[in-house]
Simulated assay, not measured.
Amino acid sequence: MRRRGFFALAAGVLVAAGCGANGAGSLVKRLFVLEPTADGHGWDRIAGRLATVVVQAGLARTAMAVERGGALGSAPRDAFGAFHGPFAREGRLLVTAMPMVAAAEIANTVAVVNAATPIARLVGDWSVLVVPSDSRLLTFEDFAARLRRNPAGLAVGGRPEGGSEHVLYGMIGKCLGVDARLLEYAGYLTPEDAVEGLQVGQVAALLGSARALRSEIAAGRLRPLAVSSGDRIDGIDAPTLREVDVRLEYSDWCGLLGPKDMSPEDRDAAIALCDRLDAAPGWRSLCAAHGWSRVYLSGDDFRQWLSTETARARGVLHELGLLKSSDTTCWGSCVRRP
């Protein structure tokens, strides 16, 4: 009889290789994937799915998704405790994303890139700007003209304040030459709440996950004005921001961090696991099924990118009035003028 591969535990879900699985080539004996539970993180339940694929691909003998409470901004500092490895025996990785980066900046705690060891950026999620189907804002140009005319009079919704959509809205405003401090933004705990807020007129437009809003767009209940991706998105009839002369490309993203004081050997082992995960057919199928874009970066490349992305977010959060100071400066407009 084949042994069950899943065991429900109080701390999370443990995935174990079945009797027929070969763990001889695994990179880690036990892997714990830590997932923040704070509101607004935006990548709920990805840890469990990741743990399943890691075991199915033979990268770990067992893997457990573990929920971690507490403040989102301090998660990289608090999640690992006094754990020191070695990774091959008992590895621990923390799910991270753009909201965690922003939360750390807003809380004025240690930046995520410095509070832990950046291991890999795994997947991304493009955003779409939508309005109700009966909105008088027919195009992005209509939206931009109204925003320039009266920034405070155009309320835009998205996930919680300081999160990915709020940062993106600040970037759009900045690129359009609008004072970000005047932007009116409403944060909602869930995408469903945000869509409801749009439909009842609490906000005039909504920034949200293109993946999550695709069905509402397909049903004709929402009209897309622009997408934040570099190329157009299949199934969404809307230009990219670059096509409407806003030189901006932006994606919410999800990655993994290790403990701050990882040894070089443990860091290399964790990166090797992520390299093989990204190449695993099971992971690629999972990404396709959930509409996640694979945006893989690992090791020093991820660390450098995360440092740059943190600086970009910090500058926008400062202009939105959520930070007292900023290390970044905007040099000129992001819009191509005639």
Rank of each mutant, 00 (worst) to 15 (best):
G153H: 06
D44F: 03
I271N: 04
H166Y: 01
F302R: 02
V316P: 07
D275N: 11
D261Q: 13
L273P: 07
R121W: 03
P86I: 08
R337Y: 15
D252Y: 09
E141Y: 09
A115V: 01
F143C: 02
T96A: 06
W126S: 09
E319F: 01
R181E: 09
R159P: 05
R214E: 10
A218C: 07
G5Q: 14
R77A: 12
L27C: 07
A102V: 01
D39E: 15
R77P: 00
I217Q: 04
A63N: 13
G208C: 05
G255M: 05
R247D: 14
V335D: 11
D300R: 14
I233H: 03
R247T: 09
P118Y: 12
A24T: 09
A51P: 05
S307G: 15
P281W: 06
D266N: 09
A219K: 12
T308Y: 14
S228N: 06
D231S: 12
V28A: 03
E192Q: 13
A38E: 02
G173S: 03
G230Q: 11
D78Q: 07
T37H: 03
A186L: 13
V112L: 14
A219N: 10
A144D: 05
G177P: 05
T139M: 09
Q202H: 15
L94Y: 11
D234C: 01
V113H: 08
Q202I: 07
F6W: 13
G124M: 04
S263P: 04
L277S: 05
D234G: 13
Y296W: 13
P259Q: 12
L50S: 03
S229P: 03
L222F: 03
L317T: 03
L182R: 15
R247I: 04
V167Y: 00
W305N: 11
W253K: 02
A75N: 02
E192D: 13
V227E: 01
S307C: 08
G5R: 15
E161V: 11
I233E: 04
S127I: 01
T190Y: 13
R4G: 14
G258A: 06
A103D: 01
E216H: 12
F7I: 12
V66E: 15
R242E: 15
V244S: 04
E243A: 10
P264F: 10
F6K: 12
T308D: 15
E105R: 11
N114Q: 15
H84S: 15
T52W: 13
A272W: 07
S326A: 14
S229L: 05
T328M: 09
